[in-house]
Each structure stands twice: as structure tokens, then as C-alpha cells.
């Protein structure tokens, strides 16, 4: 019989954030079980809902996961890009299974980080920017459009002081827009783009785990530090998060109903912190490796409370 204090980790085993989390659980000697989404999507035959008369369980190819045996769950149900490109029938089946699992964790009567079903403001960057601004964060001036001849847009781009990115939660490589992009404005009716004032200065990632915040400053010559060129240096450094920023992060996470978030900032030359977005499912592994596992440990501590 497994330890009653086992932690369930739900996500793709191949996802680095999941494998990082389980490695840390193993290193601390904390029992855990992984519900691998890849296996679930291929082999799940029953999702017994937590509110059914029987106890909550998932049957995976003959193996039963009995949820009475776990004390908490770390859930990272990411939608793979590949899933969107599956044949229609398969895609529908995958979506239904994902939705069933999501609802399962919405209902599961135990500590779940992060429990699905929050406000999901990150699904729209401009929507979230409005929310962040209303919550007290400074946000960069932003322009969302699918109108090729939007007033002032061509001038804005010609000056070269804006970056462009996706409007949705879908990850995009952020870069500066300039004159060389002007001919591409004709494609805007096919897909809106979010332009944003370029803020020179370091990036900052703040991870919020329960009441604790962990800051890391990133200096890079490329606009999007996540995608450096082969010769580009990216420097990371721990950073104390100013109290007022930490408080804003806490309040925002509370409003979103989330206990674990990753906030992205830029610090302008005048010291102003601009919030770019708040991620409800942060891929924190690389930041954690550079911070002596303080983020993972805080996450595990939250799960074990």
C-alpha cells in the first residue's frame, strides 16, 4: 500500500518541467507517482469522477490509479502543438480526454497546484495586460491589430521601437519590428499581432509559490532571451524582488485562483518594472537549477502542507 502522503504529478513525462519536479521529489525522498499524459491519452479507459459514488480513479491500460492514496497533486496539463494538427477524429478524442482530466482535477478533493479552471487570463495577452494594469502593475504600451492600415501603425514600426508577439497564450519568438517588416502588414487580416513598446533593460522572471517569491534577472543582447543565437551570451542572476512588486504578484495570483505563477518583467533604465505577462503554468526548471532548487522545494512544501 503506497504512503498516504504520496504526491501525484500529472503531466508529460517527457516535459522537462515534470522530470525536473520528479527528480527533486526523488532527491528529497518524497514518494510520488506520475500520471503521464502521453500514456493517459493513449490508454485511459475510465475516468471515474471524484463526485461519483465510487472513489475517484483513472484506469490506464489495466493499471488503476486510486486517488484516495494521494495527498496532493502537481498538475501541468499543457496542450501539445502536435495535438492541434491531428486528424479531426483523433483530435476530438484527445480534447475530450484532456477536458475530462482537467475537470477531474478541478473536482479532486485534495491540494492541487495549479487547479485547472481559474480565470485563465493568460489565454489572451492583451486581456491580461488590462487585468495587470488594473491590478496596479505598470505595463508597456501595447497595440493589437489585424488591420494593415491601422492609424499610425506603419510609422510605429518604421521607428523600430516596438516588438511583436502573439496575442494568445501560444508561445512566439519575440523580436523588434522594423522597416523590413512593413511589407508583412498585408498579412495582418489573416492573423492579428500584438505590438508592444520595446523596453531596453534586463528581463526579470519572478516565480511566486504560495507566499514566497523568487526573482531572477536575465541580461541578453537578443530581444527574446529564450532564443539566443549560438554566440549570444545570456547571464542570469538572483534578484531580490521589491516588496511592492511581490505584493502585486501575490494579489494577482490570488485573484486568478493560482498558487504557482511565473511573472515576466522588464526593468527600464529608470528602474521602472514593467510587467509583460503572468504565466499560470510556469516552466520553471531552468530557473530552479540556477537557484539551488529553492523554487522546486517551495513548490513541494506547498504540496505537502
Amino acid at each position: 500500500m503506497p504512503d498516504a502522503k504520496q504526491i501525484l504529478v500529472a503531466g508529460y513525462q517527457a516535459d522537462r518541467t515534470i522530470s525536473h519536479t520528479t527528480a527533486r521529489l526523488a532527491a528529497r525522498g518524497i514518494p510520488f507517482k506520475v500520471l503521464d499524459l502521453a500514456q493517459y491519452l493513449q490508454a485511459a479507459t475510465v475516468v471515474q469522477h471524484p463526485q461519483c459514488a465510487l472513489s475517484a480513479r483513472i484506469v490506464l491500460d489495466g493499471l488503476t490509479l486510486d486517488f484516495d492514496l494521494y495527498s496532493a497533486a502537481y498538475v501541468r496539463l499543457i496542450e501539445l502543438r502536435e495535438h492541434r494538427l491531428l486528424p479531426r477524429e483523433v483530435a476530438i478524442s484527445v480534447r475530450r480526454k484532456m477536458a475530462a482530466l482537467e475537470q477531474f482535477f478541478v473536482e479532486l478533493p485534495m491540494r492541487v497546484i495549479n487547479r485547472p479552471g481559474g480565470r485563465q487570463s493568460n489565454s489572451s495577452k492583451p486581456f491580461q495586460l488590462v487585468e495587470l494594469h488594473a491590478a496596479g502593475f505598470r505595463v508597456p504600451r501595447s497595440y493589437s491589430t489585424n488591420m494593415p492600415d491601422a492609424p499610425g501603425l506603419a510609422d510605429l514600426i518604421s521607428i523600430g521601437q516596438v516588438v511583436y508577439k502573439s496575442n494568445s497564450a501560444m508561445r512566439s519568438v519575440v523580436d523588434r519590428a522594423g522597416r523590413s517588416h512593413l511589407h508583412r502588414l498585408a498579412h495582418l487580416p489573416n492573423c492579428p499581432v500584438l505590438f508592444q513598446d520595446y523596453i531596453a533593460g534586463p528581463d526579470v522572471r519572478v516565480h511566486l509559490v504560495g507566499p514566497r517569491v523568487f526573482g531572477q534577472q536575465i541580461r541578453a543582447k537578443v530581444v527574446d532571451y529564450r532564443y539566443p543565437g549560438p554566440l549570444d551570451r545570456v547571464e542570469y542572476q538572483s534578484l531580490d524582488v521589491p516588496h511592492e512588486i511581490a505584493v502585486l504578484c501575490q494579489r494577482f495570483a490570488e485573484a486568478e485562483g493560482l498558487g504557482f505563477m511565473g511573472f515576466d518583467f522588464k526593468i527600464a533604465h529608470d528602474g521602472t518594472w514593467y510587467c509583460l505577462e503572468a504565466n499560470p503554468m510556469p516552466g520553471y526548471d531552468a530557473f530552479d537549477e540556477r537557484s539551488d532548487h529553492r523554487i522546486a522545494d517551495a513548490l513541494i512544501d506547498e504540496l505537502r502542507q
Binding site: R84, S124, P126, S144, S168, N190
Partner: peptide, 18 residues
């Protein structure tokens, strides 16, 4: 691409309304 186009449109339009 229509899947991405739709997601981007919805995200951007929601921001417009908000």
C-alpha cells in the same frame, strides 16, 4: 494555420472588448 489564426483572433478580440 487556421487553428492558430482563430486562436489569435479570439485572444486579440477579447482584449479589444475588455
Amino acid at each position: 494555420d487556421a487553428i492558430y489564426s482563430a486562436a489569435e483572433f479570439a485572444a486579440a478580440f477579447v482584449g479589444f472588448l475588455r
